[in-house]
């Protein structure tokens, strides 16, 4: 992957997650963490040291983990249920549907190492279906922060939000994009740069790749708008419609299958309200081959150069 973030310091957003959770737990004794033996991979070691009774490790048992979360919420607690995203969402999907979404419980689902963060470990450990699965459910906002500031902001938001939600975090290093004092607003996109020829919409680890692509496009005389769309459901319809009107073309980039994820969610708005040409970049409906997380993104056409090329090609299709 290439400039201008090549030399930028990269951060593992799990650190922002746990530091924020620990700070919030220090202020509110009702905040608890629930995990499936994932103290290490969820980076909950410090939390356990500070609040040993409030780290509820159910062992390797994801269905029980989500149910326990729902029960803790019934008992007045604010549970952050943390596990590797593929197992949290895949194994416990019915618990998420019945016990969290349908029962409207105050359970914060935190999917760690989402997308293809586990790279070479293979598709069993990839979570590239979770946007589709969870956004199909009522009552559970779906959020994929782009950097450590947005991760911290989303965790602060989740702690005070009355209801369940799904926070999709990665472990793949990303540069800082948003200001330290960023405030997360559910259902609101952030315009990271304005432009008038095309709009790039991304979230999670793809946002900084979209920013690099926009810089590459600028060098070729193309003005690209970049929307960071952490909130997949509810989605910022106004920002999408405005982008369609202002730029006339939209490229979506996601660490997810192109079936049912961010691109699909954006396309639903575009089709209903402002039809313009679109290209949906993501995993094209296959199980990934063996490669690291970043290499997989490159291989699936989401290297910044490739994003820029897709944008250029799309501009050629504008009416």
């Amino acid at each position: 992957m290439n400039t201008p973030y090549k030399n930028a310091k990269l951060h593992d957003c799990r650190d922002a997650f746990t530091a924020t959770l620990e700070a919030l737990a220090g202020q509110n004794s009702d905040i608890v963490a629930v995990c499936n033996d994932s103290v290490g991979s969820s980076k909950l070691g410090n939390f356990r040291e500070q609040f040993p009774e409030r780290l509820i490790n159910v062992g390797i048992a994801e269905q029980n983990m989500v149910g326990v979360g729902a029960g803790l919420a019934n008992g007045g607690k604010i549970p952050f249920v943390c596990a590797a995203a593929p197992f949290l969402t895949g194994r416990a999907l019915e618990q998420i549907k019945a016990d969290v979404a349908y029962s409207q419980t105050n359970v914060k689902l935190v999917g760690i190492s989402s997308g293809m963060a586990y790279g070479e470990l293979g598709p069993t450990h990839h979570s590239i279906e979770d946007f589709a699965w969870i956004r199909a459910l009522p009552n559970v906002p779906v959020i994929a922060p782009a950097d450590r500031a947005e991760t911290a902001a989303a965790i602060r938001w989740a702690a005070q939000y009355e209801g369940g939600c799904f926070l999709r975090l990665s472990r793949v290093g990303v540069p800082d994009l948003l200001p330290d004092d960023h405030v997360f607003e559910l259902g609101k996109a952030n315009m990271l740069r304005d432009g008038h020829d095309v709009t790039l919409i991304a979230n999670g680890v793809l946002t900084h790749r979209a920013m690099i692509a926009a810089a590459l496009l600028e060098a070729r005389g193309i003005s690209a708008r970049v929307l960071n769309m952490a909130s997949v459901r509810p989605i910022d319809e106004a920002a999408i419609i405005d982008a369609a009107h202002a730029t006339g073309a939209i490229v979506t980039c996601e660490e997810h299958t192109i079936f049912g994820g961010l691109g699909s969610a954006v396309a639903e708005v575009v089709v209903d309200h402002a039809p313009v040409p679109m290209t949906r970049l993501g995993v094209p409906g296959v199980f990934a081959h063996t490669a690291s997380a970043n290499t997989l993104l490159d291989d699936f056409g989401m290297a910044p150069d490739a994003i820029a090329q897709s944008a250029e090609a799309l501009i050629g299709r504008k009416g």
């Binding site: 409030r54 269905q63 326990v68 618990q95 016990d99 419980t105």
Partner: peptide, 22 residues
């Protein structure tokens, strides 16, 4: 809690009891 699919109630009960214990 909304039940229907089987095998959901006891995990939720464990969470409830854990909340009271805490």
């Amino acid at each position: 809690t909304n039940t229907g699919p089987l095998g959901h109630g006891l995990p939720i009960g464990v969470g409830m009891a854990k909340a009271a214990q805490l």
